[in-house]
Amino acid sequence: AEIMKKTDFDKVASEYTKIGTISTTGEMSPLDAREDLIKKADEKGADVVVLTSGQTENKIHGTADIYKKK
């Protein structure tokens, strides 16, 4: 799966169907969080990951919607 910015995804959204939401939390780098989200998306058969939230304090927390091409 590839990560797309919401603004970029909005241009092609009609080509995809939302298949779920994924999240990651833990003591990790932003890059590790990104890789974890991609891994989870791949496991669910998603083609595209669109980040919906991200937070960093002591731990990273990120959520994303996942989509499959129609």
Results as ranks from 00 to 15, higher is better:
residue 26 G to T: 13
residue 11 K to T: 05
residue 20 G to W: 03
residue 70 K to D: 04
residue 43 E to R: 08
residue 12 V to Y: 05
residue 62 G to Y: 15
residue 52 T to L: 10
residue 16 Y to W: 03
residue 47 D to R: 04
residue 57 E to T: 12
residue 56 T to C: 14
residue 26 G to A: 10
residue 62 G to M: 15
residue 44 K to M: 15
residue 59 K to A: 13
residue 61 H to T: 13
residue 40 K to F: 04
residue 54 G to H: 13
residue 4 M to Q: 02
residue 10 D to H: 06
residue 56 T to S: 12
residue 38 I to Y: 03
residue 51 L to E: 01
residue 12 V to P: 01
residue 19 I to A: 02
residue 33 A to C: 10
residue 14 S to H: 15
residue 47 D to A: 05
residue 69 K to G: 03
residue 57 E to G: 13
residue 51 L to C: 12
residue 21 T to P: 00
residue 51 L to K: 00
residue 69 K to C: 08
residue 42 D to V: 14
residue 32 D to V: 08
residue 21 T to L: 04
residue 41 A to D: 01
residue 69 K to E: 03
residue 46 A to G: 04
residue 14 S to P: 05
residue 41 A to F: 02
residue 36 D to V: 09
residue 50 V to N: 00
residue 53 S to D: 12
residue 58 N to Q: 09
residue 13 A to W: 07
residue 46 A to R: 00
residue 6 K to T: 06
residue 45 G to Y: 05
residue 30 P to W: 15
residue 32 D to I: 06
residue 62 G to E: 11
residue 45 G to H: 07
residue 14 S to M: 09
residue 68 K to V: 10
residue 8 D to T: 04
residue 43 E to C: 11
residue 68 K to C: 05
residue 42 D to W: 13
residue 29 S to L: 08
residue 59 K to I: 13
residue 62 G to Q: 15
residue 11 K to C: 09
residue 69 K to N: 04
residue 21 T to I: 07
residue 49 V to H: 01
residue 30 P to G: 11
residue 60 I to Q: 12
residue 31 L to I: 10
residue 25 T to L: 09
residue 27 E to M: 14
residue 4 M to R: 02
residue 27 E to S: 13
residue 20 G to D: 03
residue 27 E to D: 12
residue 70 K to H: 06
residue 2 E to V: 15
residue 48 V to S: 02
residue 41 A to K: 01
residue 15 E to W: 14
residue 50 V to A: 00
residue 51 L to G: 01
residue 3 I to F: 10
residue 9 F to R: 00
residue 14 S to G: 11
residue 36 D to S: 09
residue 36 D to A: 13
residue 35 E to G: 06
residue 54 G to Y: 15
residue 67 Y to R: 00
residue 34 R to I: 15
residue 36 D to C: 13
residue 54 G to M: 15
residue 68 K to A: 05
residue 34 R to S: 06
residue 55 Q to R: 08
residue 49 V to I: 15
residue 35 E to L: 14
residue 61 H to E: 11
residue 59 K to S: 14
residue 64 A to W: 08
residue 70 K to C: 09
residue 19 I to V: 06
residue 48 V to E: 01
residue 5 K to D: 15
residue 42 D to K: 13
residue 15 E to C: 15
residue 45 G to K: 06
residue 14 S to K: 11
residue 53 S to Q: 11
residue 46 A to I: 03
residue 69 K to R: 10
residue 57 E to R: 07
residue 27 E to F: 15
residue 9 F to E: 02
residue 24 T to G: 04
residue 56 T to P: 10
residue 27 E to K: 12
residue 9 F to V: 00
residue 6 K to P: 08
residue 70 K to M: 07
residue 30 P to N: 12
residue 7 T to G: 10
residue 28 M to C: 09
residue 56 T to F: 13
residue 58 N to V: 10
residue 9 F to D: 00
residue 33 A to N: 05
residue 3 I to D: 00
residue 52 T to M: 11
residue 48 V to K: 03
residue 52 T to C: 12
residue 62 G to P: 09
residue 64 A to S: 03
residue 56 T to R: 09
residue 2 E to Q: 15
residue 10 D to E: 12
residue 24 T to K: 02
residue 63 T to Q: 10
residue 32 D to W: 08
residue 68 K to Q: 07
residue 23 S to G: 06
residue 23 S to C: 15
residue 46 A to W: 00
residue 59 K to R: 10
residue 21 T to Q: 09
residue 60 I to R: 09
residue 18 K to Q: 07
residue 28 M to L: 12
residue 1 A to E: 00
residue 23 S to D: 07
residue 68 K to L: 06
residue 66 I to H: 00
residue 42 D to C: 14
residue 43 E to H: 07
residue 24 T to S: 06
residue 42 D to R: 14
residue 20 G to H: 02
residue 43 E to D: 07
residue 50 V to F: 02
residue 37 L to Y: 04
residue 10 D to I: 09
residue 57 E to D: 11
residue 64 A to C: 05
residue 48 V to I: 10
residue 61 H to R: 12
residue 4 M to C: 06
residue 67 Y to T: 01
residue 21 T to G: 03
residue 38 I to H: 03
residue 8 D to Y: 06
residue 15 E to S: 10
residue 50 V to S: 02
residue 38 I to W: 04
residue 5 K to V: 11
residue 59 K to L: 14
residue 23 S to Y: 14
residue 55 Q to W: 15
residue 3 I to L: 08
residue 37 L to V: 03
residue 26 G to E: 12
residue 4 M to N: 01
residue 13 A to I: 07
residue 21 T to N: 06
residue 26 G to I: 13
residue 21 T to C: 11
residue 33 A to Q: 09
residue 64 A to N: 02
residue 5 K to T: 15
residue 29 S to E: 08
residue 35 E to V: 12
residue 64 A to T: 01
residue 65 D to Q: 04
residue 41 A to H: 00
residue 38 I to F: 03
residue 12 V to H: 04
residue 37 L to H: 00
residue 58 N to G: 14
residue 56 T to N: 11
residue 45 G to V: 02
residue 55 Q to M: 13
residue 17 T to R: 11
residue 41 A to N: 00
residue 24 T to Q: 05
residue 23 S to F: 12
residue 19 I to H: 01
residue 62 G to N: 12
residue 50 V to M: 02
residue 41 A to R: 01
residue 40 K to Y: 05
residue 26 G to S: 11
residue 68 K to R: 10
residue 69 K to L: 07
residue 17 T to H: 10
residue 17 T to A: 06
residue 39 K to N: 06
residue 33 A to I: 10
residue 67 Y to A: 01
residue 49 V to Q: 01
residue 4 M to D: 01
residue 48 V to D: 00
residue 5 K to Q: 11
residue 13 A to P: 01
residue 59 K to N: 13
residue 55 Q to G: 10
residue 54 G to A: 12
residue 58 N to M: 11
residue 44 K to T: 04
residue 17 T to V: 13
residue 65 D to A: 04
residue 27 E to N: 13
residue 48 V to Y: 02
residue 68 K to P: 01
residue 43 E to T: 06
residue 21 T to W: 07
residue 45 G to Q: 05
residue 42 D to Y: 12
residue 45 G to E: 04
residue 53 S to C: 14
residue 20 G to L: 02
residue 6 K to C: 07
residue 25 T to P: 08
residue 29 S to P: 06
residue 3 I to M: 07
residue 60 I to A: 12
residue 29 S to Q: 06
residue 22 I to Y: 03
residue 67 Y to N: 00
residue 17 T to Y: 15
residue 38 I to R: 09
residue 44 K to S: 07
residue 33 A to E: 06
residue 33 A to P: 05
residue 44 K to Q: 13
residue 15 E to F: 13
residue 6 K to M: 09
residue 3 I to A: 03
residue 6 K to V: 06
residue 3 I to N: 01
residue 6 K to F: 07
residue 3 I to W: 12
residue 42 D to H: 13
residue 62 G to V: 15
residue 31 L to C: 13
